[in-house]
Structure formats: C-alpha cells, structure tokens
C-alpha cells in the first residue's frame, strides 16, 4: 500500500512537469494545419536572424567559459592549497550573483562603464564579464567539489617531491583529476549564457535570449519549437555532465566506451 502511494506521487509529479512540456511539443508540431510536422523547427533553423543570434550567444558562451576557467580554477586551487581559512569568504562571494538580480548588476555595469575612461559598453567584453559573474557560482562550486574530492595538498606535495614544477603539477596532476568538475562547470556556464535575456537585452546585443523574447511576442508556433530545442540542449548538457562525471578522477576511455 505504501508503495502505491509513492508511485502515485511520482506519477502526479511527472504529470505536473511533463504535461506542459508535452503540450508545448505538440503545439510546436502543429504549424501545418491538420497534420503534425517539423515546419516550425524548419522555420526557426532557416531564419538567418536565429542563426546569427545563436552563433553570437555560443561565441559569448565560449569566451565566458575560458575567462571563468582562467579566473576560477587557479583561485579555487590556491584557496584549497594555501588559504583554506578563506573558503567561507569565497563561498559568500560566489553566492552574491544569486542575491543580486541580473537587472541590478547590468545597470550597475552600465553606469560604471558607459563613459570614458572606462568606456566598455560598446565592447562585447563587458557582456562576457557580466556573464562571468552570473556563471561564477556554478563554475566555482563545480571546481570546489572537484577539489574536495581529491587531496589537493598531498597530491601537490607528492608531485613536488618528485621534482615537478608548477606547470607540471597543474597540467599533469591537478587538471586531469578535475576533468569532470571542469566539464560540469563548462556545460552549466554554456547553458546559462545561451539562454540569458536580461543582460544581453539591456546591453543591446543580438543574443539568443532577446531573439527568443521578440519571437515569442510576434509568432505562435516558432517560440514553442525554440523552447523545445533549448530544453533538449540543456538536457543534453546535463546528460553529458552525468556521463562524464561518473567514476573517480574524470573521464577515461574505458568508461566513455559505453556511452557511444
């Protein structure tokens, strides 16, 4: 009997989550009257504005990932190795983007960087910097979890005693063992940047978020198709994190073999 109730709640939860998704999917397939078709998807994918917006957002995502990795990984590593007493401070700082709304952040950025000598608003660099702030909690937490899983200090010392310098320690010992954590942070950052609206719209960049917002106001079927596509993209990323994050240390060829 207990089992029945558990299953009932699971079923209700599933209906709650999947029914709107199913409705959106079904609606996105009804562009052609009287039959199900992929016309809406075709329209979206062949729209040059979509392609432009997607490529722009993807580029921003790549830059954001690179800058975040360069900023966060060495910082988190150093905090773990030499300044463990700073961990709570770091955690507080990385939580700030959750507390400060994106709209506040972007207005602050515009006020601070829209006039010389710090005129950055015309440059996509400001957008990337803002995205780095947004992505910081996810990136830092992923890396932090990865570093907690390995004994950073002892591994570093073991490598040192064997004659290794800092580049060797970082690239041969630490990074390979953080691979799944780094990939996790990377995918999450990608997912955040690709769908971001507020900052991109406020800084007036032709990103995917604003494109989707405009499309949603003017069309019926295409936004539904876009929603499903972004959903698949996000879930695809999460699935990849899961597959890559399995096992200790990171991905190994024998573990990946089963995923092809």
């Amino acid at each position: 009997m207990k089992r029945f109730w558990s299953w009932l709640w699971i079923a209700l939860g599933a209906v709650y989550f999947f029914l709107p998704l199913y409705a959106t999917l079904r609606f996105s397939l009804m562009m052609k009257k009287g039959e199900l078709s992929l016309l809406a998807y075709e329209k979206v994918l062949t729209d040059p504005a979509f392609v432009k917006a997607f490529v722009f957002s993807a580029e921003m995502a790549v830059f954001t990932i690179l800058v975040s990795l360069l900023l966060v990984v060495p910082t988190a590593y150093w905090v773990h190795l030499r300044l463990p007493q700073l961990k709570p401070v770091m955690e507080f700082i990385t939580m700030l983007p959750f507390v400060i709304p994106a709209i506040v952040l972007v207005f602050g950025l515009i006020r601070a960087y829209s006039k010389p000598p710090l005129l950055l608003t015309p440059s996509p660099a400001l957008l990337v910097m803002a995205y780095c702030v947004l992505a910081m909690p996810y990136m830092y937490r992923s890396v932090d979890v990865g570093l907690r899983a390995i004994d950073v200090r002892t591994l570093t010392e073991a490598a040192q005693s064997l004659g290794a310098g800092w580049p060797t320690i970082l690239f041969k010992v630490i990074f390979p063992n953080l691979r799944s954590a780094l990939l996790g942070g990377t995918f999450l950052t990608f997912a955040i940047v690709i769908g971001e609206l507020t900052i991109a719209a406020s800084l007036a960049w032709p990103a995917l978020g604003p494109y989707m917002a405009v499309l949603g106001q003017n069309r019926a079927y295409e936004p539904a198709a876009l929603a499903i596509m972004s959903f698949v993209l996000t879930w695809g990323s999460i699935l990849l994190i899961e597959l890559v994050g399995r096992g200790r240390g990171g991905l190994r060829s024998d573990q990946l073999a089963g995923t092809h």
Binding site: A158, Q160, S161, L162
Partner: peptide
C-alpha cells in the same frame, strides 16, 4: 631550497598516488 629541487623521495600516509 624548493621541495622540487631537493631530490627527496616522500611517502605519505594517504598514499597520494595520482588517480589519473
């Protein structure tokens, strides 16, 4: 002298083998 210049072999309680 830096630890990586000393040519000293060290064995740790937690083994510290490189997992990768």
């Amino acid at each position: 002298r830096a630890p990586n210049q000393r040519k000293i072999g060290m064995v740790f309680q937690s083994y510290a083998l490189f997992p990768n």
